[in-house]
Design a protein around this nucleic acid. Structure first.
Length: 896
RNA sequence: GCCCGCUUGGCUCAGUGGUAGAGCACUCGCUUCACACGCGAGGGGUCAGAAGUUCGAAUCUUCUAGCGGGCACCA
């Protein structure tokens, strides 16, 4: 007898399996020996080299792993490709901070040394998340691990840059961009965080150069007035029409600025007149372009005032300058009023610094043609297919429609340096390498452009750069396009859409067939988890407390809807894990003799006892459903199906029904067979559960006394056995027996009704009862065959079954569906009034139901228009209820 | 401002044009030889509100309210 601990200890199971799986190469698609096997590919959304595991990762990784393990067990050549991105800004920030502690700036080191230092940092501190991914049980192929700064992927970046440049889709331009004064780099529109902020709206009067009066403008940023070069009004605004073309004197600065008319201005807002600062506001920049206005830069890259702002202001921080401007305006009597005002300000997504719009020269990627490729793919092939399609397909399409050019350069040192070189004469040469540039330029006196590319530029190539592109590798041919991308919704624009565009551009095939968008794990108040709010739940702590498998089940059940974090739910899955453990424990304690049975369910299936035919039916329906549910990414349903099958069908009923035979004291062929059957069902259940609960299932599967090798999927023949390469159960239609299911249901109902009587009549658990069952002929044989099991599960000393038995008066009785009746004689124990009450209550329920049905069937419209089979179904129900009511009436009469 | 999603028992969530489901919580009874992270038996919801389509609506349509999210150039 094999004895295992009473309680499942996840830590024990999580200790060794992963390392063994990894060492033996189980995660690599090469383990599959079937050359014709279908292929399944997922690339991981590369986590950030500076990051550590959060709940969103755990959620996505769980789903990716479930799909990958399911496909792998189903014989697919399955590849889940891991990796990491270099996170230009965040990483540079980390290392800069580290240097600061040493009293150094990156400029002290110089670019080369600084980049070396970053690699060193990465070596030491980067990629913590990789071990956390191992902890999750993620079956990623580490041999294909990719990092965006690796030479292969860097080459892909250069290649794509050059091709886009040569196709005229990358250009340099001087325009107003989002500048982060803290990170000292430009950002793309998508990296800008818009946050509402309580501020003030300042009303400032600009006086006319000639004559009295002036125009009052309203602004939230008075310090920018130092760079004003016009005041704009709406051309249709009657209040100002006559003033267009007049000249104003800018207070403090005393610059002469014109009044211009521009459609952008909303007459209703503020005073209907807008101060125009072309160098420090995107809208004003546009107005400036239209009216040919001067651009006066009064704020620099460090968000400090420039010389152009005037001697009093030069060098001041922008907020200090604001105070001083207001002070001076007050003195001049130009500040008319100040009102509280809430507006949205732009912040840096990474460091939360308020951005400064600045005019600068940057590299841009034109999006029109790329966008059209993606839109055409969506329109013609409906690719990628979003799951759920509502609302993501629309959001994706809308965004593409309104796409603006992408700022791809960054003023950083950590990242892919733009493959562009300047000659001494200032000529710009774009090439794949310095050598190629030198050849093109005819000189080796070249200086490489300083900027690097946006990290997302390399991420956009991820599904194919990781497979070897631009080379036509075997991997690329085999695994591209990938099968599905699993991601959170907040990077659909930033990442998903860009991968689609580059995939279509460079390979002419969409990078993934489907995009599954996960829900978001919220905190218990329904708020997004975030570092700043400190409301995040650490998945590693949850793993420690409840086990990885339980956490994975909980996360799987979230699916694609947002869900509040609910620790109780993880606890219930922890309990489920323990239930599985104990079912196995019971099997192992009663395993002796089982190994002698080669084919536990062999022979004519019709000869099997009812409960065996029933569990085979349930098992095969479960396999059928789970396969279908995973096929359509319905993780929640799959978890529910498995939970219900294992706990309710297998544990609560099958094991209990088999117990008598299985735990018989003496060895016998029957006992061995019953044991082997139970073990077989358990074994198949473990395979079904494995994608969700890799550790527990492996731990138990290895312990079962079965022929492990024979259970492997044929694609993995000869491999050291592991449940992760065992065949995922497929439904066998021949084993689905609807009749067995309904007959078993009748037995279950009978047992439940008797237990209900026991509870309601307060019969002590130890007291034995007698059962008298009356049923029509077909059911008599079913109950007779199950009589021992019925007796055991109702704690009955004896069961008698007949057509119409003479029921004793002193008995608690119940009517079953199908017209069967059961009586529990309770001589001397029964309270007739109580029993009458119980039966009356039952009858009332029946009557309510009968009335509802009668009303429906009495409706001619229903009978004529509803499908005939629906009408028949209702009539059958009425017949059943009538029969049961009549029986209840008889019982009540007998009691009176 | 525009667009989208959500609103189902105390809590967290499934669900579907045709008898309202689960887990947790709750009540009662159980140290029944796998499991008290358990076993058995229960109670509890007019499916946010209103109108419409339909023989029939929690499910489809429209409107309203509350909550959440995305997008947008309002100084």
């Amino acid at each position: 007898m094999i004895e295992i601990p009473k309680t499942y200890d996840p830590k024990e199971a999580e200790r060794d399996h992963y390392a063994r799986w990894e060492e033996r190469g189980y995660f690599a698609p090469e383990i599959n020996q079937d050359k014709n096997a279908p292929v399944f590919t997922i690339v991981i959304p590369p986590p950030n080299v500076t990051g550590s595991l959060h709940m969103g990762h755990a959620l996505q990784h769980t789903m990716m792993d479930v799909l990958t393990r399911h496909k792998r067990m189903s014989g697919f050549r399955a590849l889940w490709l891991p990796g990491m991105d270099h996170a230009g800004i965040s990483t540079q920030l980390m290392v800069t901070r580290q240097l600061k502690k040493e009293g150094l700036s990156r400029h002290d080191l110089g670019r080369e040394k600084f980049v070396e230092r970053v690699w060193q940092w990465k070596q030491e501190y980067g990629g913590q998340i990789l071990n956390q991914i191992r902890r999750e049980g993620a079956s990623v192929d580490w041999s294909r691990f990719a990092f965006t700064m690796d030479e292969d992927l860097s080459r892909a970046v250069r290649e794509s840059f050059v091709r886009l440049y040569e196709d005229g889709m990358i250009y340099r331009g001087n325009r107003i961009v989002n500048w982060c004064p803290n990170d000292q780099t430009v950002l793309s529109d998508l990296e800008v965080l818009r946050e509402p902020q309580k501020g003030k709206l300042y009303y400032i009067c600009y006086r006319f150069k000639e004559g009295d009066g002036g125009i009052t403008v309203a602004t939230t940023r008075p310090e920018t007035m130092l760079g004003d070069t016009a005041v704009a009004v709406n051309p249709n605004d009657e209040r100002y029409q006559s003033l267009v073309g007049k000249t104003l004197i800018l207070p403090i600065v005393n610059r002469e600025i014109p009044v211009v008319a521009d459609d952008f201005v909303e007459s209703e807002f503020g005073t209907g007149a807008v101060k125009v600062t072309p160098a420090h506001d995107p809208n004003d920049y546009e107005i400036g372009q239209r009216h040919n206005l001067e651009q006066v830069q009064v704020i620099d890259k460090h968000a400090k005032m420039t010389e152009a702002a005037g001697a009093d202001f030069a060098g001041l921080d922008r907020y200090k300058a604001r105070e001083l401007v207001l002070e001076k305006l007050e003195e001049l009597g130009s500040l008319e009023k100040v009102v509280d005002y809430e507006n949205a300000i732009s912040k840096c997504e990474r460091c939360k610094t308020v951005l400064e719009p600045l005019i600068s020269t940057q590299w841009f990627c034109r999006m029109d043609q790329l966008r059209d490729l993606a839109l055409a793919k969506l329109r013609d092939d409906r690719k990628p297919k979003f799951v759920p399609d509502v609302p993501y397909e629309k959001v994706y399409a809308d965004w593409l429609e309104n796409l603006r050019d992408w700022t791809i350069s960054r003023q950083l040192w950590w990242g892919h340096q733009i493959p562009a070189w300047y000659t001494k004469d200032g000529e710009l040469i774009v090439a794949r390498s310095r050598e190629e540039a030198e050849k093109k330029a005819g000189t080796n006196e070249l200086t490489q452009h300083e900027d690097v590319l946006d990290t997302w530029f390399s991420s956009a190539l991820w599904p194919f750069s990781t497979l070897g592109w631009p080379d036509e590798t075997e991997d690329l041919k085999t695994f591209y396009p990938t099968s599905v991308l699993i991601t959170a919704r907040d990077i659909i624009f930033l990442w998903v859409s860009r991968m689609v565009m580059t995939g279509l551009k460079f390979i002419a095939k969409e990078p993934f067939a489907d995009v599954y968008v996960t829900g978001t794990v919220l905190d218990k108040h329904g708020q997004r988890m975030s570092k700043t709010k400190m409301n995040g739940v650490d998945p590693l702590e949850v793993f420690d407390k409840y086990g990885v498998d339980a956490t994975r089940l909980m996360l799987s059940s979230i699916g694609s809807t947002d869900t509040r974090w609910n620790e109780k739910q993880v606890e219930s899955y922890r309990n489920f894990a323990n239930k599985i453990w104990n079912a196995a424990r019971f099997c192992l304690m009663n395993a002796e003799g089982a190994e002698s049975i080669a084919d536990p369910f062999g022979g004519d299936r019709n000869d099997l006892p009812l409960h065996d035919r029933w569990i085979l039916t349930r098992l095969n329906k479960t396999a059928r459903d789970v396969n279908a549910q995973l096929e359509e990414y319905d993780f929640h349903a799959a978890v529910q199906t498995l939970y219900h099958f294992f706990w309710d069908d297998f544990c609560d009923w099958y094991i209990e029904l088999s117990k008598a035979t299985m735990t018989a004291e003496n060895d016998s062929p029957e006992r061995s067979t019953a044991r082997a059957r139970m073990i077989s069902i358990l074994e198949q259940s473990l395979r079904l559960l494995h994608p969700f609960m890799p550790y527990l299932t492996e731990e138990l599967w290895q312990k079962l006394p079965v022929n492990h090798s024979a259970l492997l999927h044929q694609a993995y023949e000869g491999v050291e056995p592991t449940v992760m390469l065992a065949a995922f159960p497929q439904a066998d239609a021949a084993l689905i027996d609807e009749r067995a299911e309904s007959e078993m249901q009748a037995v279950i109902d009978l047992i439940s009704r008797v237990r209900n009587i026991r509870a309601e009549m307060n019969i002590k658990p130890g007291d034995r009862i007698q059962l008298m069952i009356a049923a029509r002929t077909e059911m008599q044989s079913v109950f007779t065959a199950s009589a021992d099991q019925i007796a055991r599960l109702t704690r009955a000393a004896g069961v008698s079954i007949d057509g119409t038995v003479q029921m004793p008066k002193a008995a608690a009785r119940a009517v079953l569906s199908g017209g069967a009746e059961v009586a529990v004689p309770l001589e001397g124990l029964i309270d007739f009034a109580q029993e009458r009450g119980r039966l009356s209550k039952e009858k009332e329920k029946m009557q309510k139901e009968a009335e509802k049905l009668a009303a429906q069937l009495g409706n001619a419209d229903f009978v004529n228009r509803a499908p005939a089979e629906k009408v028949a179904e209702l009539r059958a129900r009425v017949a059943d209820i009538d029969q049961r009511t009549a029986a209840l009436d008889q019982m009540l009469e007998a009691l009176s």
